[in-house]
Design a protein around this nucleic acid. Sequence first.
DNA 1: TGCTATAGGGATAATTTTATCCCATGGCCG
DNA 2: CGGCCATGGGATAAAATTATCCCTATAGCA
Lengths: 140, 140
Amino acid sequence: MYERKISLAIDCGLHLTKEVLNGKWKPALLNAISMDIKRPSEILRLLPGATRRVLNVQLKELEEHGMLEKRIYPQLPPKVEYSLTEIGWSLMHIIDAMNQWGDANRQFLENVIARDPKTTQVSKSVCQMYRDMAAPGKQA
Amino acid sequence: MYERKISLAIDCGLHLTKEVLNGKWKPALLNAISMDIKRPSEILRLLPGATRRVLNVQLKELEEHGMLEKRIYPQLPPKVEYSLTEIGWSLMHIIDAMNQWGDANRQFLENVIARDPKTTQVSKSVCQMYRDMAAPGKQA
DNA sequence: TGCTATAGGGATAATTTTATCCCATGGCCG
DNA sequence: CGGCCATGGGATAAAATTATCCCTATAGCA
């Protein structure tokens, strides 16, 4: 397993939180699981941009950090379900805030981010499903 | 300048927000500036773990993303001050929440993070100054 | 038998992010 | 003159994160 060469700086709450949320899909994973999309295969379908491998890794990290609980059903083919722990749930305030802020400022943000020379392309519509599920029949 | 090879996925609010906050020091920078620590040299002193170069880069990105405003005083030696824009201020809800969550769960988090094999060492006390300044005379 | 679904993880390449180092500006001070 | 201050940024090395590819296991179905 990979070993850090530069020590982590986790002095203020900000950095602690950042460390827990640090991963391309971690907020999305927590979000998905909070919405009861809890089996790895379901999550994978929900996040087409993500690789199975990365999801495995990040789910594992979230579990190791105590945000998720993993339940393995002794079946075949295997069945696994993740759920938020208490502290994991408490993180949802932040995730929700991020989601809302991003949505509220979508137009502005898409603009400034697309203007960024580091951005070559911008894909949309992936997590759209989230909202479709949260507000069914709205635009579907 | 570096050009992305893999396009950004900024479909849901979560990813938009994540993109804006994506950078080792960005939350800390916004936090510092919100507390009126607004000159690059001051910020650098506040965050000993950060390189001058990285702060420059991340400040610039935050500015390009519209979160910060940069004011250059025509003096010598140069004087620069950053301030939060309106949308930048609105981000502070999230930053504050992250800070509070991290602090509230500090003990638990330090534990699980230190247990992580990827963590070799954990440094503390850097941003402590934040709190000292926010609640002066408490432990100083 | 061959293929599907479900989940997990090793090895290694590719990509992105940070760290290091170095140079430039231009007054002021000893 | 030589060095300091404050700020900015190029070039390149190092580190960290993700992406790709491949292999495991087993029940069920055509």
